[in-house]
Structures are given as C-alpha cells and as structure tokens.
C-alpha cells in the first residue's frame, strides 16, 4: 500500500515538473508609483506593469507576492520568491549578496522635501530604515530619523518631527503635487545608487539572463521609455 502511495506521489511530482515553473516576484507594495496595493487589494504600479510585460516576453508564468522591506533580501536568498522588484537601487553592498539585472530604471535622483523652502538640511532628516537614503543622511552629518515605512517619513515632516525627508524623487513628486503647497522640494537633487534593477539569487543565472534579455528588448523597442513616461511623467529620465 505504502509503495503505491509513494509511486503516486512520484508521478504527481514528475507531472508537476513538466509544467512551467511559476516565477514568484517579490515586492514591498508600499512605494507608489513603483509598487503599491490598489483599491482592489492587488499589487499595482510601474513595477507590476513592467514585471508582467517582462514575464510575457520571457515566456514565464509570474506571480506577485508582497514582503516586508526589512526581510526582503533574506527571504529571496532562502528561496521564498525568485525575484525582487521593489524600487531597489543597485548598490555595491547589495550586489555582493544578490545579483541584479541591468537597470530597468535609470540612476535615480533622491531629493529633500520639507514644509518650507528654507528648511535646514543639516537638521533632522527623516528616511526609511535600511535605504540608501538613510545611509546617505548618516554620512552628511545631519540627524538621521529613521522610520520603518516610507509613509511615516512623510508624516514626520508634516507634523514637524523632522525638518525634511530624503527619498527617491519619483516617490516624492506625486506627494508634493497633491499637498497643495504644504510640501516643497528643498536643495539640489542627490544622485544615489546605480539605477534600479531586478534582484535575483546569484545561483539563478539562467533566470537572470532571461530577464536581462527581456529588459534589453524593451529598451530597444522603446516600450520601457513609454512605461517610464506613463508612470513618472514626461520629465523623467529616460534610457
């Protein structure tokens, strides 16, 4: 009896292997317009649309999962999902641990936002914990005020807890636009990071090549630029 069950299980397994592997795409779901949860409760945003298109071009079945930003890399490493598309800038530190595809978003400018144009940028600066912006603030000599989510960094500026917030400019633009003048950009943009790429395990070279090729093809036919314009406005940096 036991043997029969085992063979049945083995058959089920081999049958499973034949069908296409699902590629699980990890994201944070709290960083519009890169990725966010829409009213329907689904992952939405620039990266969702881009990722779906990349999967279509690479002929992969993809599924979106959300994960806390804090543990997004350890969970990739232990295989709970296969890629990270979460507005993650390519940095040397991260590159040592995981692999990145070529950037699908040009090197970003980060910017300071405050409630008044003469805010003190060496004062208290809010940033999300574990981001390149937080690392940058720590180096500038300003007082770094860290929050676990991007939302809370904006709130800190609104309620005066911080003088300014440093974050990706594209994340800040819609917020500043909708604030009716309450929030303004301050100082010059700060170039940080080497663009945003898709993170993968270093051992997953085959998957990385597929996505690299797909990104390249979207760059070549201009569809990536279209997407960038759609989500980040006409003034955004293009490839």
């Amino acid at each position: 009896m036991k043997k029969i069950v085992l063979t049945a299980a083995a058959l089920a397994l081999t049958a499973g292997m034949a069908s296409a592997q699902t590629v699980r795409m990890g994201t944070e779901g709290a960083y519009p317009p890169y990725n966010f949860i829409n009213d329907k409760g689904e992952v939405d945003g620039f990266e969702r649309e881009l990722g779906d298109e990349l999967c279509r071009r690479a002929e992969l079945t993809c599924e979106w999962v959300t994960n806390d930003w804090d543990s997004i890399i350890p969970n990739l490493l232990s295989g709970n999902y296969d890629t990270i598309m979460a507005g993650m800038s390519i940095t040397p530190e991260r590159d040592e641990v995981i692999d990145f595809t070529q950037p699908y978003y040009p090197p970003t400018a980060s910017a300071y936002v405050a409630t008044s144009p003469d805010a003190d940028l060496t004062g208290v600066i809010a940033a999300q914990t574990g981001t390149i912006q937080a690392a940058h603030v720590a180096e500038t000599g300003a007082t770094l005020l860290e929050f676990p989510t991007p939302d809370e960094t904006i709130n800190a500026v609104r309620n005066g807890e911080a003088d300014a917030v440093l974050a990706d400019k594209d994340f800040l633009v819609p917020i500043v636009e909708e604030s009716n003048g309450e929030l303004v950009f301050v100082g010059d943009d700060v170039p940080l990071g080497g663009g945003i790429g898709m993170g993968l395990r270093e051992s997953d070279t085959e998957l990385k090549e597929k996505f690299d090729a797909a990104i390249q093809s979207m760059k070549d036919d201009g569809s990536l630029n279209e997407l960038l314009k759609k989500w980040f406005g006409d003034d955004t940096t293009l490839f």
Partner: peptide, 28 residues
Amino acid sequence: FFSGFPTTHQKGDALYYANYFADKTFNP
C-alpha cells in the same frame, strides 16, 4: 524603537542594532 518611536542619530536599542546588522549582512 521597533514599532513606536523613531530613532535619532542611529541611537537605538539592542534589537535596532541587531536589525541593522541583519539588514547589512543579509544574514539574520
């Protein structure tokens, strides 16, 4: 510091630093 209050100047408690290292070394 984990849920309630923000950290200033990276002055945090034991969990904050443990979290910092887990985040930087990617090894919890």
